[in-house]
Design a protein around this nucleic acid. Structure first.
Lengths: 232, 232
DNA sequence: CCAAAAGTGTTACAAGTACACCCATGA
DNA sequence: TCATGGGTGTACTTGTAACACTTTTGG
């Protein structure tokens, strides 16, 4: 069986978006799809996902999690391909994504060459219908992101190193699709020890300057699980 | 690449246990391992997991969830095998597990026949070291179970249809490895609408008879997610 | 009548919710 | 000086934790 990886890259900048690419190959011709690649014989799934990320978006060393395997025999036309999906998250403002590799040999029955045409961010509610089961994979990855968000401090991967409480609140609101009371959000998040208060202030906006905060790095060491339950 | 499925079957009866099997084949010779099987060419991963479950434990129509893919190129000696792991949970007292298929053709380079010798329950802390990366898979499945437990009412899969609050409390204690105050547990769980109070009483024990409860079936329909956050 | 487990009640405190209000800043 | 968003305080409600007390049952 052929095995591939597909990556759902989520980015944040006021809103949650997903990065999709357009490429030519028998199955994706001219449709926006998740960046993906065949897994090489001597390559682990994580390595394949990292390589894919670099080749198709230019990203390196970013947060990456396995979401799951999609293996329906009918999910692809032609040869059966099992795909393992990954979720990547970044601060959108920090990177300018663009495919690094413009053409690759597409390993399948026909073994054609595929051209990577371009990549583009889509707001979640403006995401087009994706080919094969990529829409399902993207939605599963989003559910996975929401779940992970609850008990692991991954929110900081989606923000600049220094951020205001408002930005963090906007992120929570975007991910959970809720409205939060700024006053209560502030109290709750400050009572946890996730944040470090900085002596710097945001220079944006036409009103009072907001204090900047950073993620408390000590927390990163104690793996995930348990400690971080943060519901709203 | 060869693709297989492996199942971590968890059962409850006072304690959490896992069901392992012993079989002969080049890689598992005489070691306890997770029940697993090669995925056939025209079979979905879920179908393969269900078939495996039936062939190696006799279970049919039980709760099953995909945990994830394990695809390190060095996880198996010989041909590379990617495995997708599943987690199954049952009320241990309801079934008497035993392999239904005693020998199968083992699809690999050598294509030998494998004999399924026996199956046995192991308490979690008495689980032996498993071959290949099966120990890692089992631990990942357990973490998955704990996680799922929080926000999905899967606890009822592990109990008889009618159960006492004490039994439910024991289950929570076993899964989360904590001690709970019976009085407070009772209040919290009864305030949720998970349970239906029955007019029946347990006939066990040499003291006051405990009232029996059942799962509120209405909840089963509204899929998982959100509604069911139940921490202790 | 006693031990053991089921089940109820009470109290003190922590956490969450909904606001009103003050502060700093640019226009 | 006013509008805007940042930030603080407070009163009310709800949830949690610890533990004392009552009820039922078998021996």
């Amino acid at each position: 069986m052929i095995v591939s990886v597909d990556c759902a890259i989520f980015g944040f900048e006021r809103e949650l978006s997903i990065f999709l690419i357009k490429r030519t190959n028998p199955y994706f011709k001219n449709k926006w799809s998740l960046p993906g690649s065949i897994v090489f014989e001597d390559e682990s799934l994580e390595d394949a996902a990292e390589r894919t990320l670099y080749e198709l978006s230019g990203l390196k060393n970013i947060y990456l999690d396995q979401v799951g395997a999609f293996g329906d025999p009918k999910r692809t036309k032609g040869a059966r391909i099992l795909t393992v999906s990954f979720m990547a998250i970044i601060d959108k403002s920090k990177y300018n994504l663009e495919p690094k590799v413009k053409n690759r040999t597409f390993i399948s029955q026909t073994n054609e060459e595929e051209l990577i045409l371009s990549g583009k961010w889509f707001k979640l509610n403006e995401m087009p219908l994706l080919p094969q089961d990529h829409s399902e994979i993207a939605h599963t990855a989003l559910k996975f992101l929401r779940q992970k968000f609850r008990y692991s401090p991954i929110c900081f991967e989606l923000l600049p190193e220094k951020f205001t409480l408002k930005e963090l609140q906007d992120l929570y609101q975007a991910v959970y699709e809720v409205q939060l009371d700024p006053s209560n959000f502030r109290k709750k998040i400050l009572k946890s020890n996730w944040l470090v208060e900085l002596d710097e202030y945001s220079q944006q906006g036409s009103s009072r300057k907001a204090r900047l905060y950073a993620f408390n790095m000590v927390l990163q060491e104690q793996g995930d699980e348990q400690e971080f339950v943060f519901d709203f």
